[in-house]
Design a protein around this nucleic acid. Structure first.
Lengths: 241, 241
DNA sequence: GACACCAAATGGTAGAACCAATAAGTCAAC
DNA sequence: GTTGACTTATTGGTTCTACCATTTGGTGTC
C-alpha cells in the first residue's frame, strides 16, 4: 500500500467545541461584537439542545482564551470582550516550563523583538512616553531593599511594557509582553542580579531615545539584555534543551 | 480619601482555577513532566475533594492551553504535552476579529518580525532548508487553478514556517506562526491577489538567502509583504480601529 | 430617606447516571 | 496458529438534577 494516500487521523468533534465554533463564527461574522452579552448558560443550553455543562465547557474555553468574561448574579452572564493578551503569555510560560521552548531560544527572540521595539519607539515616542519611562526608573531607584523584589519585578515588566507602548503599535505590545512576562517566573526563581545598576542602563536608553539615536539606544539595550540573559542562563543549568 | 491606597478588586478564586494552579505548580516544580499521565478525572476529583465537573473544567483549561491532551478509553486519560503553539495563534485571531488589534498594527508587526527572521535565517539556513523552501515554491507554482485556494494558502503558511525553521530558533518559529496563521482567515475572506507572481518573489528571497545576502533578502521580502498588506488593507475597509 | 430584608436571576459546584470510545482479554472458527 | 467476533473494564463526554454563592433590584420598616 502506498504510504501516503491521504489518510488522516479522524478527529471526533466534541459538543463543546461545536458550541465554541458557533460563538466564534458569530463574532467573526460581526453578529456578536465586544460588549455584547450572550444568553445565560441555561438559555443557551436549551437553544443549542445541549446540557448546561457542555455550554459551560464552551464558555470556559472562550473565557480562558480571553474572549468572554463570566459574571455572577442577576444582570450577570457571559460578556464578549475585546480579547486578551494574557493567554499568550500563559502559553509561552507553559512552553518554557514544559521544555517545548529553550531559555536560549527564548532570550534570543527577546533580543530580536526588542531591537524592533526600540527602532519604532525611537521614531514615535512622545514626551509622555519619556516621562512615563523616567518615572518608572525613578521608582525603581527608590526600591533598594531586598524585600521589594516583587515590586521591582513588576516595575521591570512595566518598563518593557512602556517601551512597547511607545511604538504606538498594539501588536508589538502584545508580542513584547509575550516575551517579557515569563521573565517574572525566572526572576522569582533565581533572584535578581544586584551586582550592577539596571536603572543607570535604562536611563541611558531613554536618553538615546530622546535624542532619536536609534543605534545607540539599541546597543545599550542589547548589552543590557545580554548581561541579564547571561546571568539567567548561568543560574539555570537545567532546561537547556 | 486618597485615590490610590492600593486597594485592588477582589478576585474570588474558583475551584477549577485552584486545580489548574496545582497542576501547573507540579509541572514547574518538575514533579510532572511532558509525557506523564495524570490520574483519571474520577480519581483526581476524589483526591482533591472536588466534583468531577470541576476537574473537567481544569483539564479543559489546560487542554485548550496546550498543556494536556485528553484521550478516551482504558489506558487513556490526561497526558502532559510539551506545550503547543496553536493557543497563541487562536488568541491573535480572536484579538483581530474582536477589534482588540488592528490589521495595520498586525501587519507592521509581521514585517518587523519577518526582518529578524530573514536575518537569522541568512546566518543559519542549511542546504536542507533551501531545498525545502524551493520544493514549497515549486508546489506553489503547480497550483494555478482557482479551486486550489485552500491548498495555496496552506503552502503560503508553510513557506513562512519553513523560513522560521531556518532560524533554528523555536521561539522565532512560534512568534512567526502567531503572526502568520491568522492570515489564512483573511485570505479565505478576501481572496488572493492573483495579479502578480508570488512564486517569483519567493524564489528571489531564497536565492538571496543562499548567497547570504541579508539586506537583499530582507528588501525583497519586505516589498513582497508590503504589496500583500496593501492588498489586504484595501479589501477590508472595516476593522481599521 | 436610610437601612434591613427578601426575591429572582445567574454563575459555581456537587453528585449520579449513562453514553461512547478504547484497549485488552477470551474464545470459537477456519 | 491466526483471524475475527465477542466480552469486559476503564476513561473521557454528556446529561440531568439539585443546591450554593453572589449580585441586583425591589419591598417594607423604622
Amino acid at each position: 500500500m502506498p504510504s501516503s494516500v491521504g489518510f488522516r487521523p479522524v478527529k471526533t468533534k466534541r459538543a463543546f467545541e461545536e458550541v465554541c465554533d458557533q460563538i466564534r463564527s458569530e463574532i467573526q461574522a460581526g453578529r456578536i461584537a465586544a460588549g455584547d452579552k450572550l444568553p445565560s448558560e441555561r438559555d443557551l443550553a436549551e437553544q443549542l439542545q445541549v446540557s448546561r455543562a457542555t455550554v459551560r465547557e464552551a464558555f470556559r474555553t472562550l473565557e480562558i482564551g480571553g474572549v468572554l468574561t463570566l459574571q455572577k448574579g442577576v444582570k450577570g452572564g457571559a460578556v464578549v470582550m475585546q480579547g486578551d493578551v494574557r493567554p499568550i503569555n500563559q502559553t509561552i510560560s507553559d512552553l518554557l516550563s514544559l521544555g517545548g521552548l529553550s531559555l536560549a531560544d527564548y532570550t534570543e527572540a527577546r533580543k530580536c523583538l526588542q531591537k524592533e521595539i526600540i527602532r519604532l519607539a525611537c521614531e514615535r515616542a512622545t514626551e509622555e512616553d519619556f516621562a512615563a519611562l523616567e518615572a518608572n526608573i525613578a521608582q525603581t531607584r527608590g526600591m533598594t531593599s531586598e524585600s521589594q523584589i516583587e515590586d521591582r519585578t513588576a516595575l521591570t515588566l512595566q518598563f518593557y511594557a512602556l517601551l512597547a507602548q511607545a511604538t504606538k503599535n498594539k501588536a508589538m505590545e502584545i508580542l513584547m509582553s509575550a516575551v517579557t512576562e515569563p521573565l517574572a517566573y525566572y526572576i522569582k526563581q533565581i533572584g535578581v542580579d544586584r551586582s550592577w545598576d539596571v536603572a543607570a542602563s535604562r536611563t541611558k536608553v531613554v536618553q538615546h531615545l530622546r535624542q532619536r539615536d536609534t543605534q545607540s539606544a539599541i546597543d545599550e539595550m542589547i548589552s543590557h539584555m545580554e548581561r541579564l540573559h547571561a546571568y539567567m542562563l548561568s543560574r539555570t543549568p537545567t532546561n537547556q534543551n
